[in-house]
């Protein structure tokens, strides 16, 4: 590795110069410290890559689960449209007329009158 090479080169220089042993010691120390820092950075980088990989996997799993649920819901929905009972009573066609037409049936009139009375007594209590 480059860092290692640098250390070696720096070290050689320091050994060659007996005049400045303390300076060599400081430089050596700095280089060792830097090497250690770089190693740590690489370790961190490797860990981050691993984490990212794991997250990607989790995301893929979630996507699978999500599409399964979506498929499940839509398969249920297609069934809904067809769910009408076999025997059924329908609203009479007379109802397609939407304009007001007062009823002339005495029994209906009696019921509507009663309904209005009930509603009036409801308002009295307001």
């Amino acid at each position: 590795m480059i860092e290692y090479g640098l250390l070696k080169a720096g070290g050689g220089k320091a050994v060659g110069s007996l005049l400045m042993p303390s300076a060599a010691l400081v430089i050596g120390g700095v280089l060792v410290w830097q090497l250690w820092q770089d190693k740590k950075a690489i370790r961190d980088l490797k860990q981050t890559a691993k984490d990212t990989q794991q997250l990607k996997q989790q995301l893929a799993d979630l996507q699978t689960a999500h599409s399964a649920t979506v498929a499940q819901i839509s398969s249920l929905q297609t069934g809904l449209a067809t769910a009408t009972p076999a025997r059924a009573i329908s609203v009479p066609p007379s109802l397609t007329t939407t304009s007001p037409q007062s009823t002339s049936s005495p029994s209906k009139l009696a019921m509507l009158k009663r309904l209005v009375e009930d509603n009036l007594s409801l308002r009295k209590n307001l």
Binding site: V91, L95, T97, T98, S99, P100, Q101, S102, T103, K108, L109, L112, K113, L115, V116, N119, L120, R123
Partner: peptide, 18 residues
Amino acid sequence: IGALKMCLEMPPEYWEQL
């Protein structure tokens, strides 16, 4: 629909009371 039908069949003089 039933509620609408009631509205349409109710004579105007009944509505006036409300």
